[in-house]
Amino acid sequence: MDPVFRVLCLGADAPDLVASSYGPFVVQGCGSLDEVAVRLREEAHDALLLYSDAPAALAQWPALAQAVLDTAVIVVLGAPAPAEAVELLQFGVQDVLADAGDAPRALRLAIERRRLQAAAGRGYSTDLPTGLPNHAQLLEHMTHLLALREREPAPMALIVLRVDGLAAVAQTLGQEAADVLRRKAAVRLRAALRASDVVASIGHDAFAVLLAWIDSPADGERVMDKLAAILSQPYSVAGRAQRLLPHAGLASYPEHGKNAEALMRRALGAALQFTPMGRDVMLPADRGPAAAANDEEA
């Protein structure tokens, strides 16, 4: 049985799309880019088809960064200039069409290509013990988002959280127990953040959190303090209460840099210089059998 592809469509009805042999497609129409952004947040779609005569408006659309991450985006411009088409491709759009009649084929191929790329990329882009994006994948995501920020400036922040205590767990309970502890820390970070925020593993003892949408740089400091406090709460591993000692660092865009590498260096450097409170009571990690807060077995 052929899969059914869910398509969000802006700017035109698509009867040919519904009847195409490249489907079956289920098409949901939208009347504005704002409505598209809302629908994308509410439910998953395989593709987004945008009919437009204003490519500059699409390039400056704030939700485009999330749209190209979540769906295969195809744009029909009618008579696109080469520079306009290339710019949209740089922002992550899969294809730019001059003829709406090519939309069914372009959509199906874009969906399949995106699935193949995702399958191929999971091996190199994921930290296997935690299931989080790894360092390279985070930098790639940041580079893409920062390119959009050049057109639509807005504050964002990168938080790095280095943790002490994993090595002690690995020595006393084994590497598998240390990996369980890392997974539990990852679960806590994800649970404490919005869906639009990105959590990544950037090393055996460090996490990074990208706050893609913040109102002011002060929000980054507030979230950093909250995450450090959450990570420092006890965990249950192998029936024992374990603790991690987080060292936190923050880099704000654009104050501390305008490219991914500069922001990462700044946040890492700040985390290395960070002196956490309560060092004498936080370590050693192994405290013997005890209950741990907010810590279901992973």
Rank of each mutant, 00 (worst) to 15 (best):
S196I: 14
R41L: 15
E221S: 02
G288S: 01
A195W: 02
E84C: 01
L138V: 13
V38P: 07
A147N: 12
A72C: 04
D13M: 01
A208L: 04
A200D: 08
A200Y: 13
L244C: 05
L128P: 13
G101T: 03
L58C: 09
L148H: 15
V86N: 10
L272K: 03
G278A: 10
Q273H: 01
A57G: 13
F207E: 09
L40D: 06
E112N: 02
H204Y: 02
G92M: 07
G121Q: 05
R108D: 05
L272P: 01
E152L: 02
V209T: 12
A136P: 00
G249N: 15
P246E: 15
A167D: 10
R151K: 10
E84G: 06
M156Y: 08
A212H: 07
H45L: 13
L210V: 15
G203D: 15
P62D: 13
A106E: 06
G165P: 09
I111C: 09
L245F: 14
L146A: 07
R188M: 03
G165F: 08
A65S: 14
Y22G: 02
T275S: 07
T126H: 00
L245T: 04
K184V: 09
D280Y: 01
D53L: 08
L88D: 02
V96Q: 00
F274E: 02
P62I: 06
V237K: 12
T143P: 00
M142I: 05
A85P: 14
F91R: 15
A81Y: 10
I214G: 09
V73A: 05
V27H: 13
V38K: 11
V198Q: 08
R162T: 14
R39T: 04
Q60H: 11
T275H: 04
Y124K: 11
V93L: 05
A100F: 00
P254G: 01
A100Y: 00
Y124L: 00
R188K: 09
L161M: 08
L210F: 15
A100M: 09
L109G: 04
T275E: 12
R41Y: 04
H45A: 09
S125P: 14
